[in-house]
Design a protein around this nucleic acid. Sequence first.
DNA 1: GTCGATATTATGTGCAGACATATTCACACC
DNA 2: GGTGTGAATATGTCTGCACATAATATCGAC
Lengths: 226, 226
Amino acid sequence: MTGWEEIRDEVLRRIRARLWVPGATIPTEEALAQEWGVARATVNRALRELAGEGVLERRRKVGTRVTLHPVRKATLDIPVTRREIEARGQRYGYRLLAQAEAEPPPAVALRLGLPPGGRLLRLECLHFADGRPVLLEDRWLNPEVVPVLPDFHRISANEWLVAHVPWTTGDIAFSAANATAAEARLLDLAEGAALFIVERTTWESDCPVTWVRLAHAPGYRMHTLL
Amino acid sequence: MTGWEEIRDEVLRRIRARLWVPGATIPTEEALAQEWGVARATVNRALRELAGEGVLERRRKVGTRVTLHPVRKATLDIPVTRREIEARGQRYGYRLLAQAEAEPPPAVALRLGLPPGGRLLRLECLHFADGRPVLLEDRWLNPEVVPVLPDFHRISANEWLVAHVPWTTGDIAFSAANATAAEARLLDLAEGAALFIVERTTWESDCPVTWVRLAHAPGYRMHTLL
DNA sequence: GTCGATATTATGTGCAGACATATTCACACC
DNA sequence: GGTGTGAATATGTCTGCACATAATATCGAC
């Protein structure tokens, strides 16, 4: 029993074998380190990992216990649209439908924390897989953050932003919605088709960057890795 | 500059300030440790953390670089339905619609890795928020894993499973679908309404436990914490 | 008994040093 | 020119120790 990964696996094994049941306190780091003949830091690393995944709960002085009400943590990878489509082995296509400066609807301004009346750059575009439209993008961009802009006919805002405004923070929400008549026409669907909606708000250190709504055509599945 | 969290924040600051641009290699752990007057292990902890979030890419001998094509990692908490509804301040309700042993459809058997012809326990139930139906659950359960079963009229399978078959592995997928006539009737919706679908397959150490499809009524939003 | 100071305890984090491992690069060799 | 080998190097991980911090338990004063 050497190495924090082996120790992590052994802890998981004991939990699954009901040796340590949910809600119960497990032995201290010290005791486990002694039992397995490793340093306490090694046990700590393993237990910290499991606590991060939500399997264990740790509190100073109290000890480590197996989580009683497990909250499944699903980690999703959200790549740039082009790479996501290409990863499925399909040919990627892109078309800019509209680009204009305008006043955003109140809901968008609110989410970005902007005062009403400001003006943002609005982009509407379509993404294609093997020539078929699969994703409608509706984006509002704060021109103050990115004063020099590229030609969005050639590169998608999505892709340009991750390269030029890296490592922003944000907020993502998922939902479902019926396609409006306009959406159905653009995505070549029947009106009312169920769309998978991703809404994303992006910030760069307290400054709003962009809000975007991605409407995925039916057939789209988002999937956890593990 | 002491403490791995401060160091992590400083690294992030430098990336956002474009001192270290995407694709570029940052100084070695040794160099950073010296610059900030801390041990290499402390820098390692901070950089490892950022690599886990996808901000940095690290390879032995090569060094640490700022990720060029960031893949946003969204972490979702997926609690038990009851707790999710109660967390929104609504009253939770639950009704078992059907419980029967049956042969699962091929798609379900395939996902669970079971040979065709086996029999599973099928549960169909409705979850209510403030008295209104919001979630339709269609579940197939492997009775071999959990030989002694509770009264599913009183406790939802969801909740009973997390308490009695803890820390399973699994696989979750999200999509959107139009409500069938039957689904619309049960959820008190118009036929064709856009449902948010969660499909989940659960295993316990190479043994299939359950497959479930959750159909959320419109209005449901799944949300990242950060 | 109640309250508050103090001791105890388990985890959180840090340090210095060591060795392991993956990868690259230079160089000798054919 | 191509190829294999070994040196160099950055990260990965472990050890043993120390002190910090948070939460609890204990015990004395009143």
